[in-house]
Nucleic acid binder design. Sequence first.
DNA 1: TCAACAGATTGGCCTAGGCCAATTCGCGAT
DNA 2: ATCGCGAATTGGCCTAGGCCAATCTGTTGA
Lengths: 237, 237
Amino acid sequence: MDNSAPAAPKYYRLKEELRGLVRDAEPGSPIPTERALASRYETSRTTVRQAIAELVAEGVLSRTQGKGTFVAPSSPTYVRQLTSFTDDAAAQDLRSSSRILGIEHVTADASLVSRFGMPMASELTRVERVRLINGEPLAHEAAYLPGVLDGLRGHLEGNGSLYATLSAHYGIDIAEAEDTVETMVAGPEDALLLKTEMGAPLLLIHRRGLDAEGTPVEWTRSVFRGDRFRFFARTRR
Amino acid sequence: MDNSAPAAPKYYRLKEELRGLVRDAEPGSPIPTERALASRYETSRTTVRQAIAELVAEGVLSRTQGKGTFVAPSSPTYVRQLTSFTDDAAAQDLRSSSRILGIEHVTADASLVSRFGMPMASELTRVERVRLINGEPLAHEAAYLPGVLDGLRGHLEGNGSLYATLSAHYGIDIAEAEDTVETMVAGPEDALLLKTEMGAPLLLIHRRGLDAEGTPVEWTRSVFRGDRFRFFARTRR
DNA sequence: TCAACAGATTGGCCTAGGCCAATTCGCGAT
DNA sequence: ATCGCGAATTGGCCTAGGCCAATCTGTTGA
């Protein structure tokens, strides 16, 4: 009779069931505890946790040890359109900010030179930051810039925009950017920095920034939360 | 003493351990069975399975019920660069092909019209396909094109390229494309069509194709396997 | 020689429950 | 009232093992 969906695993049916229950619920409102759900749906906590885990990965739910599981606040989805994080956020009426994890000078690694086509600069500046939207972590990125940029931290703490700072204080203008977008699974460090869970899907973006002459002047590795983020591109043939 | 990584979950340590073992292994070679690994590492099968599941999601391993778990063949990573799937594959020396799931005429839905800025065409043509690289499924996509395109199936079965067919037989030339890229988790249908696992990370891409006058002439929803695929974009300010 | 069948093997899914850590709540002392 | 402490609650992680389905393997019989 019913051969439409006979083989769907139990955790998946539960997941979709929960998704339906949550759809009309107030963001931030709690859902029943795992033990309660296991009892209500006559299943084991393991199965409930598997269903919840995928909904968390999709950004539908969020959970905290000791507190409970909640309907995820519908965080604004940040869309990457232009080349500057700060400009993009402003264009979407989002408050952007950054937490600087470190600024340091590094010597040009062979892999950096070859993989990213940087000119043979013996010294590079590395800027590692967490990018926040409305106070919530969205991305973790490390930018490499050729040369020794003195006083960069001070300038960055001022307005936050790397591109604006580079243009105003160092005469570096990024005219063109090449982005490569791929998926990634969150490890412990990513989970911590982005306040997400291990195993959550992330977007890994490598960017090469070029100036007006086509010379590479930036290479950045960014990791974005898979929920809360979309990448936009316009291509002409 | 050792406060470097005291709190890393067991399944994660096992995952990285396995990743190391597999790094130098021949693609396609089998790894020990889940039960054997559980015994060797003095853990439970549940924990082993969690470690393997993430490695499968990353494309490092692949497994089949009844057969075993294997080092994933290092599938070529398809990179989306231009606007045409067929052209991109050719540029990367990959054999591309398509499996047509259905071609049908649909009446313009309000959501289609509003969300994608299609002109008010009462009739649309919907083309649903699975795109393959070297015979392996890479993407599942559904394209909507304005108007009733007679004989489309025949032309598509000929060369496979939708854009080439539209240009040659229907006078439709896509000059510009707008892509939105986001993550997604594989459900049962996606897993089946793309020969991947439920819960595996996917890339969901919505494309709006415009002709030389800027009129929308295509809207496509594509789901790509998260391993095996990268998206490339070049942006000028 | 080869086909068919029976058992063993392997991953897919699930159960039942334990211990720990983070958080919350209530009660008692100040 | 308020602070502090301990118990209860909740998610995080793990164990041990069961049943099923898909696959493989060896044996048996035509």
